[in-house]
């Protein structure tokens, strides 16, 4: 009887004295810890169907903003004319227009069969501040390129092509030429076209996937590619290669070699995939980039000797033999 009671008292006493502080200690530590670093998200922007935007400048003339605009139906020329009228009204103040002989900055436009739109400023048009001009160009190009039939815009002053301050021509501009990737909350999106390689259903060969990704432009292309590989394919006839829970620590390109640093999880190959398929899925995808010729794998910062039956310590080159249906 005594023994049993003693056992109880120890347990009771210890638990009362030590459990509480230990619990608090653990709680505190866990509250401030995170096991995995936050996964970078791709911001994909949903383009609203069928609405046109009119781009213009904010009052301080420090950024390009937009509002919805209902464009009337008609020929492309009619639509361009309508948009130009709106743009002229909104991008220049009356005072600025008053000094021009023509009262309108843009006096002529022409659109050719390939969709190239030529805009001519009046010959006495002189740029106010450099920045304002650039922003105005951006607003004009972004607005007009929304039309299907307009592929690019070229600017002229009188008959001369528009030049930069260093004397080079500004050239042909499209909406993609204007980017806004700094800062966080922006409606800006970019499209990237990448080729990645997923595994076939048998797991022993690779299939090429051409992806068009809409994102905010803040990721490097190599990271984009690896992110897509880790997310897995959308199509049913192929399967993901990179193991779940794999985290990309870092990816850098130096002298044509792309160094890819994964965490430990990468070493736990998916059972359905062959070792070659696992490796070359990454290598072939990355070597699609023009500045990558070889790929070096790292696990948590250091090289490993082997990856299953493959030598893992040196660089890999592109392997087309493992790709199904390669021409």
């Amino acid at each position: 009887m005594q023994k049993g009671r003693q056992k109880n008292s120890i347990g009771y006493v210890w638990s009362r004295i030590f459990l509480l502080p230990l619990l608090m200690l653990l709680l505190l530590l866990f509250a401030c810890a995170e096991e995995a670093p936050p996964v970078r998200e791709l911001i994909t922007v949903e383009l609203p169907e069928g609405s046109t935007k009119l781009y213009y400048l904010n009052e301080e003339r420090t950024k390009v903003i937009s509002e919805n605009y209902e464009i009337s139906r008609g020929t492309v020329e009619e639509q361009v004319a309508e948009l130009l009228t709106e743009l002229e009204a909104v991008l220049w103040t009356d005072a600025e227009k008053a000094v021009l002989t023509d009262k309108n900055p843009i006096y002529e436009y022409k659109i050719d069969s390939a969709g190239l739109l030529s805009l001519r400023f009046s010959s006495d048009y002189s740029a106010s501040s450099l920045i304002t001009e650039v922003l105005r160009r951006a607003a004009i190009v972004k607005t007009l390129c929304q039309l299907d039939k307009v592929t690019a815009v070229e600017f002229f002053i009188g008959t001369q092509p528009l030049l930069t301050s260093s004397g080079k021509p500004v050239g042909v501009l499209t909406a993609e030429d204007f980017i806004d990737t700094t800062g966080e909350n922006s409606e800006f999106y970019q499209e990237a076209k990448v080729s990645v390689y997923f595994a076939n259903l048998e797991g022993d060969a690779l299939l090429e996937s051409n992806l068009k990704i809409t994102y905010d432009g803040s990721l490097s292309t190599e990271r984009l590619i690896l992110q897509q590989l880790m997310d897995g394919p959308i199509m049913d006839d192929r399967q993901a290669v990179i193991p779940e829970g794999t985290v990309l620590n870092k990816v850098t390109i130096r002298d044509g070699i792309c160094y890819v640093d994964f965490n430990e999880k990468f070493m736990e190959k998916r059972k359905e995939i062959s070792a070659e398929a696992a490796i070359y899925s990454v290598v072939n995808s990355l070597t699609e980039l023009s500045n990558v010729y070889r790929v070096q794998f790292l696990i948590n910062g250091s090289t490993r000797k082997t990856y299953y039956n493959l030598d893992f310590s040196s660089t890999f080159e592109r392997n087309l033999e493992i790709v199904e249906g390669e021409q």
């Binding site: 420090t62 030429d177 980017i179 806004d180 990737t181 700094t182 800062g183």
Partner: peptide, 13 residues
């Protein structure tokens, strides 16, 4: 990637 293009972010402006 973007060399040659124009940066119109407000912060940069």
């Amino acid at each position: 990637r973007e060399e040659g293009r124009t940066m119109i972010s407000e912060e940069v402006v």
